[in-house]
Write a protein that binds this DNA or RNA. Sequence first.
DNA 1: AATTACATATACAGGTCTGTATATAGATTT
DNA 2: AAATCTATATACAGACCTGTATATGTAATT
Lengths: 187, 187
Amino acid sequence: MSLLKNKILVVASDLFQTRGINSTGVDTIVAVAGTTKMTLYKYFNSKEALILEVLAKGHQDFQTWLNDKLTTNTRKPSEKLQKLFDFIEEWVTSPDFRGMGFIKASAEFPNEENPIHQLSSEQSRQFKQYISSLAVDAGIQDADGLALQLSLLFEGAVQAEQMKRGSGAIKYAKKAAKILIDGALTN
Amino acid sequence: MSLLKNKILVVASDLFQTRGINSTGVDTIVAVAGTTKMTLYKYFNSKEALILEVLAKGHQDFQTWLNDKLTTNTRKPSEKLQKLFDFIEEWVTSPDFRGMGFIKASAEFPNEENPIHQLSSEQSRQFKQYISSLAVDAGIQDADGLALQLSLLFEGAVQAEQMKRGSGAIKYAKKAAKILIDGALTN
DNA sequence: AATTACATATACAGGTCTGTATATAGATTT
DNA sequence: AAATCTATATACAGACCTGTATATGTAATT
């Protein structure tokens, strides 16, 4: 991928998260990225296409990062589930944390027929599915149910952290997750 | 309050939730409300002032509704806490449900210095405080901690329901809430 | 009947937005 | 040296946005 294209994606992602998607014009993006609109529209057919790529990249980066963390630092399958929120905490409390793309995007584009909303919804589904696979490996019966509950805690904590940095919500999300996981494991 | 002003508030609230705040122009609002911009700007100094009033009214209506439900249908303090998510489920699954105002608003206005963001943040804090007071009455030690966890579940479920109607997230949020509450009560 | 209060109708100023058109500069390749 | 590729610089069309100015209508009150 072109260096410039990547720069545009990185800058756009940051601006979307910190200022909102609709509030961020392409003029601002190219100014911060140090390029021009002509170049942006060479790599992206429209602003919507740019948004979709930003979302896709953000989700992919997060999933890759999380999966690497889990496979590198755990051995037993049940361990993955229990350490999940440790890594999520690491991610949320990092200074670079800017929120979860699909959460904000779905709020800014509430219409269910909007492509951006649909991608957000799909990413949320995939993340839940990923947690569910961890739960299945850990031998949990209602894996989808637990995955849904954990993803609620996750999305709630990210939401809280987006609303007020340093809220400490993730600490309590972690505690709640532990209770729910332990309960599901002993059943 | 003037009938027209109320009509504008109701229409604006609905449009903000279903199409997004930034994507909804005042022209659309007055067209749907069956009035004109002159009237709108007589009752509201600016679009921002309208947004703030819509948020305030939405939060007040919800809090009033919830509090009435709880005081009418419960006797013991601990009962309130346990029935909390029953009424939240009733609210979320109602056909009129359009999401929680402050969740979407904080996503569309991420800047912490923005008045709309600040009001959203304050409303989130107040709701958490309300749950905490229920927990205190129920004799729970770490009332604030449990309240935070329950509000995470709540915001996560609302987020999930906004993203995909009929996701059933609230059912599992309810189960998770029961586990957390029971655990906190027996400590 | 005249005044007052409220709402409508319409137009527009000034700004911002997306997306494109045109011309230019620099670097690499042939 | 000429051609090609990539990016820049700049301007602009067309649409939409907020907020206001002006003129008109209509109902209630005095």
